[in-house]
Amino acid sequence: MSTSTVKPKVMIQDNTRCIGCRACMVACKSWNDRPEDKTDFFAGAGYQNPRDLDANNYNLITFNEIVTGAKPDWVFGRQLCMHCEHPACASACPTTAMFKTDLGPVVFDESRCIGCRACMQACPFIIPKYDYDSFAPKIHKCTFCADRLEVGMDPACATVCPTGAITFGDRDDMVTEAKRRIATAPGTYIPEIYGLEEVGGTSVLHLSSVPFEQIGYITGLPKTPMPDLTHRWLRVTAPVFAVLYAVFGALNWIVRRRMRRQGHDGEHT
């Protein structure tokens, strides 16, 4: 396949269509070979288990009971890697063990990882997780099923979702589709696509019937790519180095010349 035909992929998570069945969670575990969770009762609101993403859960459906007046509503949300267009995690990684592929997935290469967790620290969505109890820990997060995409398959979660809450396709089509849904059913959706602009855009676009903060999403993120924050400084590394070195060199040269003139050679003891 020539690279020019590679069209980046995007996933729509349409929470208005989600029925909280969690087929996607089971499919994700199945495809990624993740062990079960040892749980007791429920760790979150409603039937939610586990409470947060972790090394064994790359995908989490959240249960949000929202009561307006006497009217209860049950709204489901989803947490998974957003596969940012400008991934903070990858930009923070000192070894490029975390990187973004042409098709969109931000993936992790175990063989390069030093386990510094800068990626975890950097992610504005608090997504990457770590094997805290392992001798040779790995970083864990949704892979966008990169291994499936490579062979032309859709992600496991998108394949099993019964209601079409998860839709997967080419970036352009998906963005259009997300906008179309909001435009055609303004009563169903809030007019916002989470992920379209957040941190410079992501590969997962979430839609919702209620404001995203009500279903536990991290909101108020900048619209600019996160890596810009560090780039500001890092891109000047080389010039700063050169300038500083020169300045220090010059100062040192002046100082030494003056000292030689004054005729003493430093105070080495």
Partner: peptide, 26 residues
């Protein structure tokens, strides 16, 4: 002690990750 995979730390020196502050620090 802190690094998860300290035996891999040399990776930083054979990588090219100019966007990473940690890479520079390293």
């Amino acid at each position: 002690v802190e690094l998860g995979r300290p035996w891999m730390v040399w990776m930083v020196l054979v990588s090219w990750a100019p966007t990473s502050a940690l890479f520079e620090v390293g």
